[in-house]
């Protein structure tokens, strides 16, 4: 167990380090000079040189990389070229939108998917099952940005129930802020709910085939008790694995949806930063997301090892 954990931890560290290297390399061959973008068409060569020195862009790449990584280890992500503010603070500010949004979407998709999946499993190979499976297929196939546009068209423009975009901030109270997140959360939740409903269905079906469930059923345990006491707890393992993995992708996958709804979240920050060549912000966000994904994978592995402590065989 200890050996397994330390091996996984080492993998985590190596992957995270490779991620920083990869991101830094990619971004530093990216065409587009951040200094030139700041100064615009009237920039003179001497002004540009002065600004590049000020921004530290005249340093060799190796020095910049080491400085950046060393800074991150102490929690210092550097200072944004364009916003002139610490990247860490910028990210935290944007997470105040993206994390609630992803969480909202996750809760929403779970609330939709769990009952649907259970229902489908209970009605295996019957009309209800087919309907849920159809939802599962359509939900994955619909592009989330298109669904977002349709939501705006229906609920913001036709019905006028929600604003078409924007975010009032949390300082005005939770009510308006949550309201602004409803449509984006629904747009994000649809594909997640579709995936989750399918996973739930097949996990429940698998559990129903297990011997102990068959035994319990033979003993005359009621269908309801069987579901709640035996099937659901076991089916929750694969479901929560998928949930964990999807959460990391929800945070990242919000890029396009945040753009459609003009939400000041992490996805829009990184998208703007890419087009403004605010490399230090892009580096910070991408590495953060990568580490988040790796860490969630690690936790999932650990959880599996704890639940099922048989020696692990690579397959």
């Amino acid at each position: 167990m200890i050996a397994f954990l330390s091996r996984r931890l080492l993998t985590l560290a190596v992957t995270a380090w490779l991620a920083t290297l990869l991101v830094f390399t990619i971004l530093n061959v990216l065409p587009g000079d951040p200094a030139l973008l700041m100064l615009g068409t009237e920039a003179r060569p001497d002004t540009l040189a002065a600004l590049r020195t000020q921004m530290g862009l005249d340093q060799p790449a190796v020095v910049r990389y080491l400085r950046w990584v060393a800074g991150m280890l102490t929690g210092d992500f550097g200072v944004s070229y364009t916003y002139a503010r610490p990247v860490g603070a910028l990210i935290l500010e944007r997470l105040a939108v993206t994390l609630p949004l992803a969480g909202f979407a996750l809760v929403l998709s779970t609330l939709i998917a769990l009952p649907l999946g259970l229902y489908a499993a209970a009605r295996h190979e019957r009309a209800g099952d087919w309907a849920v499976m159809a939802f599962g297929q359509v939900g994955i196939a619909v592009p989330s940005f298109w669904f977002a546009i349709l939501l705006i068209l229906g609920f913001a423009v036709q019905l006028g129930w929600f604003a078409a975009g924007g975010f009032p901030g949390w300082q005005g109270g939770a009510g308006p802020a949550v309201k602004a997140l409803v449509l984006p959360a629904v747009a994000l939740a649809l594909p997640e709910a579709a995936i989750l409903a399918r996973v739930t269905r097949s996990a429940v079906l698998d559990t129903l085939r297990e011997d102990y469930v068959r035994t319990a059923r033979a003993k005359g345990v009621s269908a309801w008790a069987l579901m709640v006491r035996h099937v659901l707890p076991n089916a929750l393992i694969p479901i929560s694995t998928v949930l964990g993995l999807q959460f990391a992708f929800l945070v990242a996958g919000a890029v396009v949806v945040e753009n459609v709804f003009t939400l000041p979240g992490l996805g829009r920050l990184v998208y703007q930063a890419i087009s403004q060549r605010d490399l230090i912000v892009v580096q910070g966000v991408v590495v953060l997301l990568a580490v988040l994904v790796v860490a969630v994978n690690f936790l999932v592995d650990v959880a599996y090892a704890v639940i099922d402590p048989r020696p692990r065989v690579e397959t």
Binding site: I26, G267, I274, L289
Partner: peptide
């Protein structure tokens, strides 16, 4: 797999 696919495609 540590990188969100779409975001990375945007970057690339």
């Amino acid at each position: 797999f540590a990188f969100p696919a779409l975001l990375t495609a945007i970057l690339l």
